[in-house]
Design a protein around this nucleic acid. Structure first.
Lengths: 168, 168
DNA sequence: GTGCATGCAAAATTTTTGCAAGTTG
DNA sequence: CAACTTGCAAAAATTTTGCATGCAC
């Protein structure tokens, strides 16, 4: 399969743009990490490697291109700082479990969920082009470390029905 | 069922805070619209109604409270301006299908999806406290109205220059 | 009264842009 | 050489905070 770099290069060429050293570096950097990074974090990662000077402006500009080409997704949930970016290729369809204790993000893929989604969409005559599923909670590690109240404390609400809290 | 306002009031009381006219206004305003609004948009909506002076700061502060209480979700996708907020429509669980043509939001609930989610989470030892599922695409009406290209562009080939929406 | 809430404006953050200089084909 | 690019710094946009005043209990 084509490398991400050459895909990016083709995308750029299609727009009459060039694959420069800086752009390549940004792409490599974001494809190397599996975290969801902010532009600022990315900028610092690039700075630390330091062999090449890169400016914030270039990071932002490249991120825009990458997003436009579908190489990264920009997404921010809750009151974080800024947008967080994640690469998309090689990770075609995945969803997220976000640990509210340590911030860790587990990516997963479930055919069962996909199938169920398609079924519901079909029921409503809805044609799905993309979707985003994020589950928030506590990862196994944080539960083991006892950072999480046992089961009972979870419902801080008045009339808790059996099911858990949800974000729509 | 309890009104959103009284729920919010209870939430505030639990924290030793008060339900003020401004806070109520922000809540009403965001529950009245079905769009995903930014803080700035909300501020302007409130300003336009104008019967009550409200400051940006109060909008932001109230939004934080609402989010903390689970009355709204903050989420930003792609290169928008800032976070967008949406009401959660009570605490009943539902997910969203968002039509990219007309902006309509269909709410739905699927036990099959819930079950599949719980199963995956359990597999990973992850304890879910909340989740959010948004499916983007085209609603039945817009398809019928022919606003949507027939082509189901599923292939992710590098040579394609089509602007294909991507979501993690 | 006491303490929470508000508005304002200033400050802090995050992102975009203008421009001169550097690169690439 | 004629674009396209970059870095820098200034500008713009977004969000938070300090503080004096105003309100609710």
């Amino acid at each position: 399969m084509k490398s991400f770099l050459s895909r990016f290069e083709m995308f750029l060429h299609g727009k009459g743009l060039r694959l420069t050293a800086q752009r390549a570096e940004v792409l490599r950097c974001i494809y190397r990490t599996h975290r969801h990074v902010t532009a600022e974090e990315l900028f610092e990662m690039l700075r630390r490697k330091g062999d090449r000077s890169i400016s914030r402006a270039t990071v932002y500009r490249t991120l825009s291109l990458l997003e436009e080409g579908g190489f990264v997704d920009a997404l921010s949930v809750g009151r974080d700082q800024g947008l967080r970016y994640e690469h998309t290729l090689g990770h075609e369809h995945h969803d997220h479990m976000v640990c509210q204790e340590c911030g860790k993000i587990l990516e997963f893929h479930s055919e069962a969920i996909e199938a169920a989604q398609d079924a519901v969409a079909a029921e409503h005559g809805f044609k799905v082009t993309s979707h985003r599923l994020n589950m928030f909670g506590h990862c196994a590690d944080c539960q083991a470390a006892g950072k999480v109240p046992k089961d009972a404390d979870e419902s801080t609400d008045e009339s808790s029905t059996s099911s858990h809290e949800h974000a729509g």
